[in-house]
Design a protein around this nucleic acid. Structure first.
Length: 440
RNA sequence: CGGGGCGUAGCGCAGCCUGGUAGCGCACCAGCUUUGGGAGCUGGCUGUCGGAGGUUCAAAUCCUCUCGCCCCGACCA
């Protein structure tokens, strides 16, 4: 589990001044947003829309994205997966080899270069990675191997919606496993499945892996990782008796309604809503056969590589976290993916004892390895409190005139609102304790 | 792509039905007073009314076309 001391995400300093950051919070609810995560991402100044389903990540939003990415990297690296970065633009020929140039339909963003050659913007990268592997892998000795990337994807969705929940351009982690046989592929799948459990747990999400259909990707079996939330676009049938869970689109429970018999234990199913944040597929040899990705086995025989592929929607994971963690005042970030761990609120904007104390504390927290946001703006207390609640860092430290005279500052936990009065000298140590608990 | 809705100041909206040359709140700028939960007063700035064409003496308002955005559906790692 991570310690607070390894948590810096950008720059040489992990403390930042609010006066120097673009954090355009909104008092009013934007008319364009329907669901709470989208509203709060706009209101807290995380994102701004550029076109339908296309967004700019502002400093705060980008920090959250980077934190999710870091958790993904840490867990995938532990499994032995290797990070690569593939191109966004891919030539039509590779897609024609698998037939998906035609099958994928309008969702595939197509374009021509200056020589009128066809390209597409990658919605997923089976073709590209399989092309790489068939060129570089010859022998069973080079298997198994899993590659992943974290990259911007393009899908010209019929209807983008709900902010980062369903964009046309979005950040995705996609991974591809290559094995010599089915047993190996199964093991690669299992490792990735377990890594996903850890990743979403670390992101502070309540989720459920469910059986799912394989869609355009194809393959032999798949599981979706569903974050349970009423605003989810998918229905899932869950059995409380035996842990069975499946997307209602899945053949085994297609169009199931609540109360129907669980296919595994025959107890009644319950239908809930879910947000698909991750999806793992056993692909078999669908792509390797079409693209002739083969290796030589011990007997010197050509054999098709057995593949798996694995996706995580990075922005969607952040949005799902907000769906599950908010209140009437704003976001309540799980500590591991919060843009900052601590929001320091000096109730003064002009130079003086309060601001001095805030700067001193900022330096100390930073030294202790925490990500600190200091609200050094010359704003009224109410404005700072409301913005801080909206932005939703897990801990707020309030430094005011009155408390300071008695040698006290206040530590507030965003989620519970619980306030602890502390001497400034104790604050860093106490916060570090609490954060370490919250981060593990 | 079918159905519905909306485009007026940075944000949220009124004005449109019944044409007369654009308004409210917040934000922003200046000054003074304020300072522990979105301050008060005074003064100020801000608009190709999404775009094009048409009707009319006159169009944000009526008509036609068009673009964008949102919601429902179909669709979907």
């Amino acid at each position: 589990m991570p310690s607070a001391t390894t948590s810096s995400t950008s720059g040489s300093s992990n403390a930042m001044r609010q006066s120097g950051l673009l954090i355009p919070t909104l008092r009013d609810e934007p008319g364009e947003a329907e669901i709470v995560s989208h509203k709060l991402m706009l209101r807290a100044g995380l994102i701004r829309k550029v076109a339908a389903g296309v967004y700019t990540y502002l400093p705060l939003g980008l920090r959250v994205i980077r934190k999710v990415e870091r958790i993904i990297r840490e867990e995938l690296n532990k499994t032995g997966a290797q990070e690569v970065l593939m191109p966004i633009a891919a030539p039509a020929e590779l897609w024609q080899e698998t037939g998906r140039w035609d099958f994928y339909g309008k969702e595939l963003f197509r374009l021509k270069d200056r020589h009128e050659r066809d390209f597409c913007l990658g919605p997923t990268h089976e073709e590209i990675i399989t092309d790489l592997v068939r060129r570089e892998v010859r022998s069973y000795r080079q298997l198994p191997a899993t590659f992943y990337q974290i990259q911007t994807k393009f899908r010209d969705e019929i209807r983008p919606r709900f902010g980062l929940m369903r964009g046309r351009e979005f950040i995705m982690k996609d991974a591809y496993s290559f094995d010599a046989d089915d047993a190996g592929a199964k093991e690669s799948y299992r490792k990735m499945y377990e890594a996903y459990r850890t990743i979403f747990t670390r992101c502070g999400l309540t989720f459920r892996p469910v059986e799912a259909d394989t869609g355009l990707i194809g393959g032999t079996s798949s599981h979706e990782f569903m974050v349970l939330a009423d605003t989810g676009e998918d229905g899932i049938a869950v059995c409380d008796a035996c842990e069975y869970a499946a997307n209602v689109e899945h053949a085994a429970v297609r169009n199931a309604t609540g109360g129907e018999a669980c296919p595994r234990c025959a107890k009644p199913l319950r239908i809930v809503r879910g947000i698909e944040v991750g999806h793992v597929f056993m692909l078999g040899t669908k792509y390797s056969e079409k693209m002739k990705a083969v290796y030589l086995d011990k007997q010197g025989q050509d054999r098709a590589i057995v593949m798996g592929c694995y996706g995580i929607g990075v922005g969607r994971t952040a949005a799902a976290a907000i769906e599950q963690n908010h209140d009437a005042k704003g976001i309540i970030w799980p500590a591991p993916i919060a843009p900052f761990h601590v929001h320091v609120l000096p109730l003064a904007g002009k130079p003086g004892a309060v601001l001095d104390a805030a700067h001193a504390l900022e330096a100390e927290l930073e030294k202790a390895g925490m990500d600190v946001l200091l609200d050094d703006r010359d704003e009224r207390p109410g404005v700072k409190f409301n913005d801080a609640d909206l932005i939703g860092c897990p801990y707020h430290v309030v430094i005011g005139d009155k408390g300071l005279k008695d040698g006290q500052i206040e530590l507030k936990e965003r989620r519970t609102g619980a306030v602890t009065k502390l001497g400034p000298a104790d604050a860093a140590a106490r916060l570090k304790e609490r954060l370490q608990a919250a981060l593990s």
